[in-house]
């Protein structure tokens, strides 16, 4: 049942003609993307191509200069100002952010809380879940990422790979519609990358919707059903993993993905 109607009703994240300017520098110059339920969408491109900025615009950690963003079918309301877009209703933004589970390059765990407290924090204090329920669920997700034994440790005592897995559990615990990964393995020692990629791959296999900014080309190729190649703030190539990695006409894209062949 893959008719147009069905497709548009299960759009998880839609970005339309997004522009982002930092001073004189135009980082995004009209980017669109569309992720449906169950999609694994990878954004690739060289440093400075705007891929992290694009991801951070989806949950408004960066405010776009212009464009449209829809999360779970709901358009984020903006007021247009001279400086760019400003959200009309901050409550709406906060509500939609709880549907987006963000995983950061540098983990950003809250270092004054144990791993378990990190994972329980948002369910209790934002989603207002009862404590017992939040705890049960947090332990479940920590178990999934293989950190149940470490639940009472503080983040400072964990390796980078463990911290990132804890951060993934924290994001899962909010019950997100979409997981956003911002270069989740870039800050890790090479020998720790594998354990994190494995967790992400498992999530993809269970049908989670994910948008992934990554430098791990092989991983992006294997795990994604959609790939976007960004160059200088524009979508240079997009399509299925097969199309972008093996059938692209763009010389730049060819050169960029050739590192894995």
């Amino acid at each position: 049942m893959d008719n147009g109607l069905h497709r548009s009703s299960n759009e998880a994240v839609v970005v339309e003609n997004l522009h982002k300017q930092f001073g004189d520098l135009e980082v995004l110059r009209g980017v669109s993307l569309r992720a449906h339920e169950g999609d694994v969408l990878s954004i690739i491109g060289s440093s400075g191509s705007g891929k992290s900025t694009l991801l951070r615009c989806i949950n408004l950690l960066e405010l776009p200069t212009s464009g449209e963003i829809k999360v779970a079918g709901e358009a984020i309301l903006f007021n247009k100002t001279k400086k760019g877009l400003v959200p009309t209703d901050i409550k709406q933004v906060e509500r939609l952010r709880t549907k987006l589970g963000m995983v950061f390059q540098s983990f950003n765990l809250w270092s004054h809380m144990t791993v378990l407290q990190n994972v329980m924090e948002v369910p209790i204090h934002v989603l207002k879940l009862p404590k017992a329920e939040a705890r049960e669920q947090a332990e479940h997700f920590l178990n999934r990422v293989g950190l149940w034994e470490k639940r009472d440790q503080f983040p400072a005592f964990l390796s980078g790979g463990q911290q990132q897995r804890a951060a993934i559990a924290r994001a899962l615990a909010i019950g997100p519609r979409v997981m956003l990964f911002d270069e989740p393995t870039s800050a890790l020692d090479p020998e720790l990358v594998g354990e994190v990629l494995k967790v992400i791959k498992d999530l993809a296999n269970e049908g989670r919707t994910m948008i992934l900014v990554t430098h791990e080309m092989k991983f992006a190729r294997d795990v994604s059903n959609q790939v976007i190649f960004l160059h200088n703030g524009l979508v240079e190539e997009s399509g299925t993993s097969q199309q972008v990695f093996y059938e692209t006409q763009s010389e730049r894209c060819k050169a960029f993905v050739s590192s894995i062949h």
């Binding site: 709880t98 963000m102 950003n108 809250w110 270092s111």
Partner: peptide
Amino acid sequence: GELEAARAFGMSRFTVLRRIWLPR
């Protein structure tokens, strides 16, 4: 980054202050 994570998960400004920023 820790404050950004708090915002990214939908905490209001006051919750960020009360739960993350002030204790940190």
